[in-house]
């Protein structure tokens, strides 16, 4: 499995950025208007049902825990997590709006996008890292924090089951290289720095091939 070059696609997608931003920047609308117009700026990339856009490395956020989504929006707004596109959106939102968006996507159940087909070897290695870890790399199991079958633990860790391989891969790479550092206690950086590229491909492919068996939103 190989990743397509995502950046060009991603930039194309955001050519309509100023329009979306102005829509999001009106708190009065956000307070009373219908879901569609409020979601519009997010929909363009994250999909009408939060399914994400795998090819552009845009994550699936449907059914993701509201606490996790809120923290990411807060971190984009404060600069703790860096992404020029998301920063522009998040900074334009009030804290109450960020919470509103987080809750809205947490309540969705979008479809799963699977654009890459893992190899049997990737599935096997991914399963090992997910359930057991690897002593030779001093890497513990993913599910130890990300919950049963990678389904997430509200308040603590996002679901990764059913997430796109492209997004998981780029997130792990960002932690590995230190361009993303909003993980509590450097937990993800500590893990990602010990993974080989092939491990990242395998574990991303493995989780993208799973379904959210037990969504975190069901755990209060």
């Amino acid at each position: 499995m190989k990743y397509a070059a995502p950046i060009a696609i991603g930039l194309l997608m955001f050519s309509s950025l100023p329009i979306m931003l102005s829509a999001a920047a009106k708190p009065k609308n956000a307070a009373k208007s219908a879901t569609v117009s409020v979601n519009a700026p997010c929909d363009s990339c994250h999909g009408a049902n939060g399914e994400g856009m795998a090819a552009a490395h845009v994550p699936r956020i449907a059914g993701q825990s509201a606490e996790y989504l809120k923290k990411q929006l807060d971190d984009y707004a404060s600069g703790a997590r860096e992404n020029p596109i998301m920063a522009n959106f998040a900074k334009a939102l009030s804290e109450a709006q960020r919470e509103e968006f987080a809750k809205r996507y947490a309540a969705m159940s979008g479809p799963y996008l699977r654009e890459l087909v893992p190899t049997p070897q990737e599935l096997a290695r991914g399963h090992q890292l997910a359930y057991q870890g690897d002593e030779s790399r001093r890497v513990q199991s993913c599910n130890g924090c990300h919950g049963p079958d990678g389904s997430g633990v509200a308040h603590a860790a996002p679901y990764i089951a059913g997430q796109s391989a492209e997004y998981i891969g780029s997130a792990l790479k960002a932690f590995q290289t230190g361009t993303r550092k909003n993980d509590a206690g450097e937990q993800m950086r500590s893990v990602a720095m010990r993974l080989e590229d092939a491990d990242i491909v395998a574990v991303s492919a493995y989780f993208s091939n799973q379904k959210l068996s037990n969504p975190s939103k069901e755990h209060p």
Binding site: Q140, G144, A184, G185, E186, Q187, R189, S190
Partner: peptide, 29 residues
């Protein structure tokens, strides 16, 4: 409290306060 590399070159992770230390082994390095 934070990642640490000891003088033997071994890397430890940050504790996550899971509440399962005594009588258990740590899954988390």
């Amino acid at each position: 409290s934070q990642p640490y590399t000891n003088p033997e070159g071994l890397k430890l992770n940050t504790c996550v306060f899971c509440g399962f230390c005594e009588r258990y082994a740590c899954e988390h390095y």
